[in-house]
Design a protein around this nucleic acid. Structure first.
Lengths: 129, 129
DNA sequence: TCGATCTGGCGAATTCATTCGTCACATTTC
DNA sequence: GAAATGTGACGAATGAATTCGCCAGATCGA
């Protein structure tokens, strides 16, 4: 019985996804090792979370090998875009720009990064003159 | 008994906050009128949400007038920054830049807006040459 | 081989967000 | 002043996220 796909991954699910993105694929034990460093939860909990995430379609499982290997169902990039879009919609009333401006102004950008932003802007302006 | 402050406002709470930010301050009835357009919930629900939000410190209440007037406890800008920071931390591994680049690339920026971004970048670069 | 350990599945307890019904009290209206 | 309506407090039901305990079977090491 698949659960609703509509909602975003929750806090813990995201932490698990990050572990999977980094490793490319992990056993339940490996996920648990990564997870237990930040949260003191038990192995059993980790396995349960993975099975819930499997139900939701957030992860895939390779059952051909033992122990089974879990992988993120969606790339990090796609997930980021989706969550970003959600935030823009809910918190910035759909205006991506005000988000960009606020993120820029937060002052955490290095000179290199600003140059990169400038490059992207140049590129985008080139497309629609 | 105040609830935890740590967590971000939830979906519905955000909708209520948006109503309050726009109006500057509203009675429970007014909030309900705004809310019921997007969700078919009852007046009772709205009042309950407001009281929960009061407990959480998300809204303030002026009890000197009748009916009481609710106001957002934090400005829209501060809330946005906080939620943005949260997303950057959780989903972008702390890198504000990759978020900015992704938001820019999402292609929703108009020429005017791009110019604005360029202006900000100029300004920021001027500060740390 | 046989006990120790690991793996993964299931159900249940807990917590929190969301929703509503109901009650008490104030305000308005006739 | 009495009925009608509005306001706000409370507790409880629902549903989802998170957590864990326990069990069966697989695997490993001596």
């Amino acid at each position: 019985m698949a659960r609703a796909v509509s909602s975003q991954p929750t806090e813990v699910e995201l932490q698990i996804l990050r572990i999977l993105w980094e490793s490319g694929g992990s056993t339940a034990r490996e996920v648990h090792n990564g997870l237990t460093e930040i949260k003191g939860t038990t192995y059993s909990t980790t396995v349960k979370m993975l099975s819930v995430m499997l139900e939701k379609g957030l992860v895939k499982r390779d059952e051909a090998v033992t122990p089974q290997v879990y992988r993120a169902a969606m790339s990090q990039k796609v997930t980021q875009k989706r969550m970003l879009g959600d935030l823009i919609e809910k918190v910035y009333n759909g205006s991506a720009m005000s988000l960009v401006l606020q993120a820029l102004s937060s002052g955490k950008a290095s000179t290199d990064e600003l140059a990169e932003v400038r490059r992207i802007v140049d590129e985008l302006e080139g497309k629609k003159p």
